[in-house]
Amino acid sequence: MAPKLQLAIYWAAACGGCDVAILDTDEKILNIAEAADIVLWPIAMDFKYEDIYKMEPGSIDVCLFNGAIRTSEQEELAKALRARSKFMIAFGACAAWGGIPSLANLTNREGIFNTVYKETATTINEEDIRPDTNYPGPEGELHLPRIYDRVWSLDQVVDVDYYVPGCPPTPETIWTAILAIVTGNLPPKGTVIGGTKSLCDTCEREKTEKKITQFKRPFEIIADPKKCLLEQGLVCCGPVTRDGCGHRCTNNNMPCRGCYGPSEKVSDQGAKLLNAIASIMDVKDEKSAQELAATWEDPAGTVYRFSLAKSLIYDYKKGGE
């Protein structure tokens, strides 16, 4: 019998949903346990930093890294794990493209601190105390991780071998990824585990020529389940998003939110979608364009919900502080 796979699972700026998703593979989790030794999984087991630093380079076969990078600690751990892993996998939308945490890039550290420590209605902070990285405690000076000015995807700070998309990845996708690793049937480096087409391509809703006359939010209408959602005024990310999720949202009459990331030929998911939507707005002049655009709630948060860290509008190649 082949030696068991040494598996690490780590989380950075994430909600924990990706960890839960691994459990969502149901009975297959047993197969995973059969094939792999879990050497690190902070959400489920107790580990210390020293345990990681003690590991030899290459001693981890696969690291499933979920979450984006927004603190010095996360960057440090990403680098430490990369050095010790044969395969580094960006697991979930946050690790792959920044995910929802990267919407923070619409502002900066100062802006976030202002909101959290000063401006919210329930905050009372008359001395304007802000978090500091050094704290002189009774047991000596404590050091806390530094929050970065912006949020990065995993591959902006370390080299990544594969991407497992989704918020969170579906059990099917996770299983496909694990199966590929266990069987050694590996796709080329950099592959995103998922479909090769766009969600829109495989969507069965009826499409006609598109014209948006008014933007709607999902709670405002009961969408026709047979027709293209975009044509009904719901901003659906399907056209720019990779398929492979099993159409969970659109099958339930909800527009795609884009969590499987940009499809094969799309370099900037948000910009592409914004461009496409701007092209089909039913307007005649600048004024009517502005009026129609005003009916769209939170365009940036919609088109870049999962991929702002990778947007071309930032210096998207460098990572860290």
């Binding site: 766009s198 829109c200 391509d201 006609t208 598109k210 293209c228 056209p239 030929k265 092209s279």
Partner: peptide
């Protein structure tokens, strides 16, 4: 047009 990637969404036609 790369017909593998075209989803038939028809956005381009009107443009």
């Amino acid at each position: 047009i790369d017909s593998e990637q075209c989803a038939g969404c028809r956005i381009c036609i009107g443009l």
